[in-house]
Amino acid sequence: MSHLRAALLRLTAATLLSFGPVCAAEASAPAAPPAAAAPTSANPTAAGASAPVSTSAKRDLSRYKEERVPGGTFMLAAYMVMWALVAGFVGRTLLRQAKVEAELTDLSERVDVLTGHDGDAT
């Protein structure tokens, strides 16, 4: 149980961390205009809608293409390793559970022998 809890904690930490630097890296880049100021139908915050350039977004687009995270490759590698570690931990917990299960089976058989199957309690 405590292993799982630790694994979940790690998962949370890793997931959260995986979002942090993306934001931090962008802090140096020119900030996008706060879309909340104009929550119209032509809302530019529609994420992923990269192809249709709204008329309001007439600015130097090349700036964004050059946006690079310093040491981006290492960052990516770090995330991949982190997720692998988390998954490995969960996998190990699964394998350990099998051992606990075997012990429980053993224990229940002993109890059955001891009680001689004399009761209706399971």
């Binding site: 997931t15 995986s18 979002f19 993306v22 934001c23 890296a25 962008e26 880049a29 020119p30 996008a32 879309a35 530019p44 915050t45 994420a47 992923g48 809608a49 990269s50 350039v53 709204s54 977004a57 687009l61 964004y64 293409k65 946006e67 995270v69 981006g72 960052m75 990516l76």
Partner: peptide, 19 residues
Amino acid sequence: AARTPSDIVLGLSQKIFYF
């Protein structure tokens, strides 16, 4: 990290979107 383009309006921060 490697294949998706940056969002035109939001820049890199849009990459949070996937996860």
